[in-house]
């Protein structure tokens, strides 16, 4: 029996829920797979080593960073599931801002909060064997991964664009027909072209496809969809904001001074804090980086 562990990092629980959402297959799966560690489903905590570790969520605390290392040591295969684990997730929007400000905006007692400056994908810290993209992942791809591994086959997932899926479905292109902004041309498939099927533009849950031409698409969005630079920047800066090509494109259109970050900047200067670079993540110990308030 394949020994499975499911781990949660900073996330919404949705991707691991996908496994419990396999209502037709769940009991069948558990005949072939031993669920050794899956807190959302069971109190049983079996020790490693595990044959397969599925990791949901991004690394946002020093504890999570350590945990990633220990999971890697204890697992034959590590597969990251979902946009948080593969690209930092929506919480990686903090990487473009000042996390201290975020803390004090949300929590009355910032000194109780311990968090890293950035939300980073698991692969930033440990080698990862496979990844399942998506916010959330596709149940079909999850089942495909598990069944491939059970028969000893190398799992493989298409890396073409959402457009390819969309054409095969026979959808009318939302961009061509309605100038609706759509990330389909630069986004990896896997969702079955869900958003265009519901007549809205793709917003990039599955992250960039292989070799995406983001700048050409961004130009089109600017000229044909009449999106403002800020809107283009935001479109690329959502659930996979730290994926290289999406990040670059969002930065290109993030014309300064942008209202959003200007405010952050001002307050930062006031507090005389360090510049918020893209440096290595550092611990933000309780209260550190804040003056003695």
């Amino acid at each position: 029996m394949l020994k499975l562990a499911v781990w949660k990092f900073s996330s919404c629980d949705g991707c691991q829920l996908s496994l419990l959402d396999c209502e037709d297959e769940l009991l069948l799966i558990t005949e072939k797979i031993q669920i050794a560690y899956f807190l959302e489903a069971s109190r049983r905590k079996m020790k490693g080593p595990y044959d397969l570790s599925l990791i949901e969520g991004s690394v946002t605390t020093s504890e999570e960073r350590e945990r990633a290392l220990s999971i890697r040591k204890n697992s034959l295969l590590v597969v990251t599931i979902g946009a948080c684990a593969t690209a930092g997730g929506i919480q990686a929007l903090r990487n473009f801002s000042q996390v201290n400000q975020y803390i004090s905006q949300v929590y009355p007692r910032p000194e109780f909060i311990e968090t890293l400056k950035e939300s980073l994908p698991i692969s930033h810290f440990i080698p990862v064997d496979y990844e399942l993209r998506g916010c959330p992942i596709s149940k079909r791809q999850l089942l495909q991964l598990i069944s491939s591994l059970l028969v000893g086959k190398r799992p493989s997932f298409p890396t073409e664009s959402v457009c390819a899926e969309c054409k095969r479905k026979g959808n009318i292109c939302v961009m061509v027909a309605h100038q609706t902004p759509c990330l389909g041309p630069v986004t990896q498939c896997g969702c079955d072209a869900l958003c265009p099927t519901y007549r809205r533009g793709c917003y990039g849950c599955f992250g960039p496809k292989e070799t995406p031409n983001t700048s050409s698409l961004a130009q089109w969005l600017n000229q044909e969809s009449h999106l403002s630079p800020k809107e283009i920047s935001h479109l690329f800066r959502s659930y996979n904001a730290t994926s290289t090509s999406f990040q670059k494109e969002s930065e290109r259109w993030n014309v300064k001074p942008s209202e959003i970050y200007e405010k952050d900047k001002k307050e930062e200067d006031k507090e005389g804090k360090n510049k918020g670079g893209q440096g290595r993540p550092k611990d933000l110990k309780k209260g550190s980086g804040k003056k003695e308030d």
Binding site: I90, R94, V99, Y107, I113, S119, Y203
Partner: peptide
Amino acid sequence: EPPRFFEALLQGRNFSEAPDI
């Protein structure tokens, strides 16, 4: 559970994005 600061990261985003975010 590590904080994810939703209320802060919504700032500056368009109102139409709130349901998805």
